[in-house]
Design a protein around this nucleic acid. Structure first.
Length: 437
RNA sequence: CGGGGAGUGGCGCAGCCUGGUAGCGCAUCUGUUUUGGGAACAGAGGGUCGCAGGUUCGAAUCCUGUCUCCCCGACCA
């Protein structure tokens, strides 16, 4: 993509309304613009990142055996009356009335709707287990939205729902999501730690929060240093096999949020305890028949008896992750994207747009990079070098290539790593080879 | 919802106390000189001063109401 044609409205100064790093940087890098409190438009650069995260989340859900569907954003109030949550949910739920006076709502979550879909179609235990998910916009009318997309009112969430005949089987479904989450966050370039969680309004007796570490995170977390020793991506996971050992390995290491941590009775020696800050990006629950019972979601068991299915639900804050990743990965100059989610892999800078030889060298390399399937943002604008460098640092592409007359005389271009700041002079061919690896 | 703060060209702000018809920096457009880490000079365009009432000869400025946004607290992917 040529920057001269791209819609990328970057800001040199910090907008007054943004306080935290991710919010400031997302506005400055031209990723989002605010529509109303907690509601944002996603501009091209921001949308690209959102889609990349979505893709990784989807791939890991599919790998773990979940199946994607898509439910609407607007729901009928009827189902919520049935589950008893229409009154319980309170003002956080955005209630709407249609032209016929029917009570509707903008879905804050989808337990009721998925349970309804399930109960209409599934009759036999032979159809179990099932795990259905979608990636859809939600709305929760937060009392106080803040921190940009980290706590917006409208947000993109992946929510999966598992259905099993027995609690024991439900535990297996839970484990599959547990492991899928570990893999997902690791692929996003994040260090995520599962922590036993309060089950909150969704209810149930088994629940974990997945917290990513970021210095600017909103809550304090405590965990054993042994988490550094395990890599979720080290082994290939067989999701059809027994995942309990993997789950046990992770849950046996101490980790607690501020609320759950008791400094007096902490089982970890202080030398081994790491204190950090974190952001919740995922939450999984097993809640048995909490919804299947009141809503009559049952199947016929092997003995011909009617059994309420055992359910779990599993959320990942997809849009929140965009902010979360930035919180975990930025410096004073801007964003530092992990390669897996970067909007472009490399930024190509023409240091002297008015120079024919320089422009030709840039155009050629741009064409070759595109041909090699490498996503490149080519700054072909007639701007000064300094402005281009600053802009590239701000939007945080993992690699930068700078081409100028000075280097061309020597037959070299400059390749810079955004994360380390390391700069090397290489030939154009070497740069392509390095970026293709 | 309780407490605090702010709405003035696209962005960041000054002006308000002490009313006299709006200014600075950045950005934008034109031209010239420049060109390897947010250039210089010259010129230009762009503002219902959040909105609605009121006071006044006259309101960005004073009064009343209202809307919106931000920050702190309780809640959440």
């Amino acid at each position: 993509m040529r920057l001269s044609r791209y819609f990328l409205p970057t800001l040199k100064e910090n907008p007054a309304e943004a306080q935290i790093a991710s919010h400031r940087l997302m506005l400055r890098a031209g990723m989002i613009r605010q529509g109303a409190a907690g509601i944002y438009s996603w501009l091209p650069l921001g949308l690209k990142v959102l889609k990349h995260i979505e893709r990784i989340v989807r791939e890991e859900q599919d790998r773990a055996g979940a199946q994607e569907l898509l439910m609407p954003t607007i729901q009928s109030a009827d189902l919520w009356v049935e589950s008893g949550r229409y009154d319980d949910y309170g003002k956080e739920m955005l209630r709407i009335e249609d032209r016929h006076g029917r009570n509707m709502l903008y879905g804050p979550t989808n337990e009721e709707m998925i349970t309804d879909i399930f109960r209409r179609e599934v009759r036999s235990y032979r159809d179990l287990p099932k795990n259905l998910y979608h990636i859809q916009w939600k709305f929760r009318d937060e009392i106080r939205p803040r921190f940009g997309v980290m706590r917006g009112r409208e947000f993109l969430m992946k929510d999966a729902y598992s259905f099993d005949l027995t609690a024991e089987d439900g535990r297996k479904s839970y484990n599959a999501m547990f492991v899928a989450y570990l893999r997902t966050f690791a692929r996003l370039g994040l260090k995520a730690i599962p922590m036993r969680a309060d089950t909150g309004p969704i209810g149930g007796d088994l629940s974990h929060e997945f917290i990513i570490l970021a210095d600017t995170g909103e809550s304090e977390v405590f965990f054993h240093k042994d988490f550094d020793k395990i890599d979720p991506l080290a082994d290939d996971v067989d999701f059809t096999g027994d995942l309990q050992p993997i789950v046990d390995r992770w849950t046996s290491i101490y980790a607690a949020t501020e609320e759950m941590h008791d400094a007096e009775n902490c089982p970890v020696e202080s030398a081994d305890l790491i204190t950090g800050r974190g952001i919740e990006v995922g939450h999984i629950f097993f809640f048995g028949d909490k919804y299947s019972k009141p809503m009559g979601a049952s199947v016929q068991g092997p003995e011909g008896e009617s059994v309420n299915v055992q359910m779990g639900s599993y959320g990942i804050g997809v849009s929140r992750l965009v902010g979360g990743i930035i919180e975990a990965s930025h410096d004073e100059n801007g964003i530092i994207w992990p390669e897996a989610v970067a909007p472009f892999k490399v930024g190509l800078i023409n240091l002297r747009a008015g120079d024919d030889a320089c422009t030709k060298a840039c155009d050629d390399l741009y064409a070759e990079l595109e041909k090699a399937g490498i996503e490149v943002l080519y700054d072909d604008r007639d701007e000064r070098a300094g402005a281009k460098f600053a802009n590239m640092d701000l939007i945080g592409l993992p690699w930068q290539i700078a081409i100028g007359p000075r280097g061309l005389e020597k037959g070299v271009i400059e390749l810079k790593n955004r994360a380390t700041g390391e700069r090397v002079e290489v030939s154009a061919a070497d740069a392509i080879q390095k970026l293709s690896a």
